[in-house]
Amino acid sequence: MNKIKKLLSLPESFCLLITIVLFIVIQLRSGQFFTSNNITDLLASYTVPGIMAMGSLIVFISGGLDISFPALCSLGGFITLTVFKDFTGSVIIPFLFCSLVCGLLGMFNGVIIAKFRFAPLIVTLATEALFWGILHGILRAREISVLPACFEKLQDSVIWVATNPETGISSQLPGVFLIFVGVVILSSLLLRKTVYGRKLFAVGGNPSAAENVGINVFWIRVSAYIISGITAGIACLCRSMIIGNYHPNALYGYEYNVISMVVLGGCSLSGGRGSVIGTIFGVILIQTMNLSLTLMNVPTYWQKFCTGVIMIIGISYSAYRTMKSSQTLSGVMNKTDDKVKEVK
C-alpha cells in the first residue's frame, strides 16, 4: 500500500491524471477524440516536441538549462539540408551530419557554460541570438520547399493509415514516428541503465559532491548540452519530413512549449530530478491540448491564451505542491529513534 501511495504522489502521476482528464473532456466536447484518425494525428504530432523534450530533459537533469535549441537546430537543419541538397545516398548520412553539426553547436553552449560557470539562461539567450543571427544574417536562409532526394524514402514511409468512417478523413502515421520511439528508448536506457546516466543525476543533485567523488563534472555538463543539440537537430529534420519542407522561422519561440512539457512532467529545473516517462506524459498533455482546441471549435486567436492559462495553472500547482512538501517541520514529538543494528 505504501509503495502505491508513494507512486501516486509523484508529479508524474499527477501529470498522467490531468492528461486522462483532458482526454475525457475533449471527447465529451467534440465527440471526435477517440477516433482512429485523430489519435494518429496526435501521435504524429508528438514526434518533434517529444524528441526535443528528451534532450531538454537530459540538460535539466544535469542541472543546466538550454533555451537556444530551436535556433540551434534550425541552423543545423538548414546547413544539413543545403549541404545534402543533391545527395541521393542513404538518409542516415545527413542525419549523422546534422547530429555532428548540432552536437558541435551544443558543445559550444556547454563549454562556455561549464568552463566559465556563467548563468546558463544568459549564455543560451546569447547563443540563441547568435544562431538566429548566423542563420538569417550570414547564411540568409530561405525556405526549402522540396527536401533533398535522400529523404524521400523516409519521408514517404508510413506506419499505418487510419480512416475515420464518419468523415472519411484519413491520417497517416509517418515513419519518422519510429525515430521518436527510438530516441525515447535510448534516453530511457541512458538515464536508467548506464553509469553515465547516474552521473547526470549526481551532477544535477550535488555538483560539489560529484567533484569530490571523482566525477568529471565539466564533461558531464558539456555532454548534456551536446545531447540536447543532437536531439534538437534530429527533431528539426523529422519536422521537415513531416511537414514536407523546411522553413527557417518555423521553430521560433518553440522553447517554451518544450520546456513546459518537461517541467509539467515532473522534471526539476534545478537539476537532479526527472524521468522519461514523466516527460512523455508532459508532451502528450500539452501537445494534445495544442491540437485539440481546433477540435473543440475554439477560434484560432483564442488558442494561445487558453493553452497559456492551462500551462500556468499546471506549473503553479506543481510548484505549490513542491513548496508545501518542503515546508514541513521536523515533527519532533512524533519521531521514533531508529537504533543502530548490532551485527557482530
Binding site: 517554451y256 529545473l269 483564442w302 491564451f305 500556468i312 513548496m323
Partner: peptide, 30 residues
C-alpha cells in the same frame, strides 16, 4: 507567482509572456 508559489522566475515570466501574448491575440483577434 515567483514569491508566493515559488515558481522559478525564468519559467514564471516565460509562462506569463505566453499568456499575455495570447491575451493580446484575443483582443486583436490576430
Amino acid at each position: 507567482l515567483i514569491s508566493k508559489l515559488g515558481i522559478p522566475p525564468m519559467l514564471a515570466t516565460m509562462s506569463t509572456n505566453y499568456l499575455y501574448t495570447g491575451l493580446c491575440m484575443v483582443i486583436t483577434k490576430g
